[in-house]
Simulated assay, not measured.
Amino acid sequence: MTEPTTPQLTPMPEDWRRALAVVAHPDDLEYGCSAAIAAWTDAGREVAYVLATRGEAGIDTLAPAECAPLREREQRASAAVVGVSTVEFLDHRDGVIEYGPALRRDIAAAIRRHRPELVITLNHRDTWGGVAWNTPDHVAVGRAVLDAAGDAGNRWIFPELTERGLQPWDGVRWVAVAGSATPTHAADASAGLERAVASLLEHRAYIEALTDEEPETYVRGFLTEVARSVGERFGGTPAVAFELFAR
């Protein structure tokens, strides 16, 4: 009896120039896919970040008014490490983001502003696979991103955006979901892994509140193990996995 084979992941598309990453919180991209983003910006591609919140509810020992500007600074520094200079915040409330037209409209507006071919988000499903429960914010934003990719191209959905000068953009070709339990594609993380480590380390205040482990040991161990695990389905090359939805 032959052993079942693990399906290999397909390389991510390369024929694009602009990407927009839309997630709920500071650090979501750094835990998910910044090694791929570093490689893409190295290749001359444009990547911008949009965050639904400023992560103000993320550190138990800091009140939201103090936490929000700290986490914004950490996110901007983190993005710069992987070649991203545009970081925007939508100012939805951390922890209680509501899926619905308001969130879809804000994300559709961002897509119209940046006009990406590739949109990136984080796992939108109830779990990370098995019984590891996802957060409501991730679910709401991920679902809204998938919907807003279509909303952005329809002038009759959110017509107020056109009135504000944001013309429809129907050029999104893919939505790539990082952190999915059912990935279909992967991007080589070899060249970007060290910068991914440095990028996540910029979230030092958050990490120090999250774990008693030494920050670099924690970050390097986590990202290296994830990249190695994905690489088992990508020819042995350390990689970042995505579930890719074509449009």
Rank of each mutant, 00 (worst) to 15 (best):
V175P: 03
D42E: 15
W174Q: 06
N123R: 06
T41M: 06
R76V: 14
V240E: 15
T211K: 13
P64Y: 01
V219L: 04
A140L: 10
Y49M: 11
E3Q: 13
L146N: 08
G44K: 03
A21Y: 02
E160H: 08
G221Q: 09
L51V: 03
V82T: 10
L70E: 08
E3I: 09
R45V: 08
E88C: 03
R45A: 10
T86L: 01
T2M: 11
G150F: 15
A52W: 04
G235V: 10
A80I: 00
F222M: 14
P64L: 04
A48R: 12
D126L: 13
V87E: 04
G95K: 07
F222K: 13
P238S: 09
R233C: 05
D212L: 09
R143V: 10
E98I: 10
D137W: 05
V175G: 03
E56K: 08
F245P: 07
V139S: 05
L201I: 06
V175I: 11
A63I: 11
E163Q: 14
T211W: 12
T53F: 08
W169H: 15
E194F: 09
V50T: 12
Y49E: 01
W133K: 13
Y49G: 01
T182L: 12
V84K: 01
V172Y: 01
L118K: 05
R113E: 00
T121P: 03
L70M: 15
L51F: 14
A187I: 06
V47Q: 04
D106E: 14
T121Y: 03
P26V: 07
V145T: 10
W156C: 07
P136T: 14
H92W: 06
V84E: 01
V177D: 00
V226M: 12
L29R: 06
Y218R: 07
P13Q: 04
A57D: 11
E88A: 07
L29C: 12
N154V: 15
I59M: 13
A109L: 07
D151T: 07
A227Y: 09
R18E: 03
R54Q: 13
A181G: 13
G55Y: 05
L122I: 09
R155T: 11
R155P: 15
Q75E: 14
A187R: 03
I107R: 01
V230L: 09
A79Q: 02
I107W: 01
I107Q: 02
W174I: 07
C33P: 05
H25N: 10
L166Q: 06
T184G: 07
E160L: 00
A140M: 12
W133P: 00
E160V: 01
Q167I: 09
S229P: 00
E72F: 05
V131M: 11
L20G: 02
E88Y: 00
A52C: 14
R220A: 07
F158R: 02
P159E: 11
N134F: 10
E117L: 02
A205T: 15
P4K: 06
M12Y: 08
T182M: 11
G32A: 15
A196G: 12
S199M: 04
A102Q: 13
L62H: 11
V81I: 14
G100L: 09
S199N: 03
L193Y: 05
D94R: 05
